[in-house]
């Protein structure tokens, strides 16, 4: 994936008029976004009582995810940083309201008013520093802090995202946890490179049975091993709540063993000569032998 849009330009530049138009005129994209949104809504686990809820769509773009919310009978408004994307949403006459705003500046919403939030393919953008004044950590903090405040107790936020690597996933999660959220990552189809989809499922408020990360078929493991663990389950859950800091194998800069093993495997598959794996693989060297 050398063509990550996040690495090409800031979102408000990348999603210009041309890209915004391309986005909604591709039936492939429209289909994928609808599917992702449908799954995110399912993971929101709203009460099944037929009462429409008020949801927030973060990075709502041209309104594809919002349309899924409307189809499910709920009210919503969305926030996006790209005016071009929002203009396309206007043309599509979405039911939800649109706000031009930057989630990294924090959401200006009253406390406790939202029944839930979804965000489809957007939050990984926060990890980039697109301007000299951008500090991803501060932006993540502002975003998750403000999101936590605007959600009602027990409400959920579900993010479908494409983290660039483990470190980025950990970074996003750590800021969510710091803001007070409970929850974890749900990975659908973890063993298919094409179908693999990742959702961050967060619950606002004190832990209860409802804050447990949902899943279809559960396998308890941590994120370090999700690529190696074998099995036929289509869905994995990585729960992060209350995991002591020390046990998080991923350090800010360090590579995990699984990362190294994967890298080595990839090099081998390219025909490179790679030392065999052993118990010493990816271990930290003592400062002196």
């Amino acid at each position: 994936m050398s063509s990550r849009p996040e690495l090409q330009a800031p979102p408000e530049i990348f999603y210009d008029d041309v890209e915004a138009r391309k986005y909604t005129s591709s039936s492939r994209i429209v289909g994928i976004q609808a599917e992702l949104s449908e799954r995110a809504l399912e993971l929101l686990a709203l009460p099944n009582d037929g009462i429409p809820r008020l949801l927030l769509d973060i990075g709502c773009g041209s309104g594809l995810s919002g349309e899924t919310i409307s189809e499910n009978g709920h009210q919503w408004f969305g926030i996006d940083i790209s005016r071009s994307m929002l203009d396309v949403a206007l043309e599509r006459e979405t039911d939800g309201d649109l706000i031009l705003g930057d989630m990294g500046q924090g959401l200006g919403l009253r406390p406790g008013v939202m029944d839930g939030a979804i965000s489809i393919s957007a939050v990984q953008w926060l990890c980039n520093a697109d301007k000299s004044c951008h500090e991803p950590r501060l932006r993540l903090k502002a975003f998750f802090g403000s999101l936590y405040r605007c959600l009602g107790r027990g409400a959920r936020a579900v993010f479908q995202l494409y983290p660039e690597n483990n470190a980025q996933r950990e970074l996003i999660l750590s800021f969510a946890m710091r803001a007070g959220f409970a929850g974890g990552v749900v990975i659908d189809f973890p063993h298919s490179s094409k179908k693999r989809k990742e959702y961050l499922v967060l619950t606002c408020g004190p832990p209860s049975t409802s804050t447990m990360t949902p899943s279809a078929k559960v396998e308890d493991s941590n994120s370090c091993s999700d690529d190696e663990s074998s099995g036929d389950e289509e869905n994995q859950t990585v729960s992060y709540r209350n995991r002591p800091r020390k046990r998080q194998k991923i350090t800010k800069k360090g590579k995990t063993r699984s990362w190294v093993l994967k890298k080595k495997e990839k090099m081998r598959s390219k025909g490179n000569v790679v030392p065999p794996d052993s118990k010493y693989t990816a271990r930290k060297r003592k400062s002196r032998f």
């Binding site: 206007l90 031009l100 705003g101 301007k131 004044c133």
Partner: peptide, 11 residues
């Protein structure tokens, strides 16, 4: 504008 409030903050 066109129903969309611009809530972007300056630096």
């Amino acid at each position: 504008n066109k129903g969309i409030p611009n809530m972007l903050l300056h630096e």
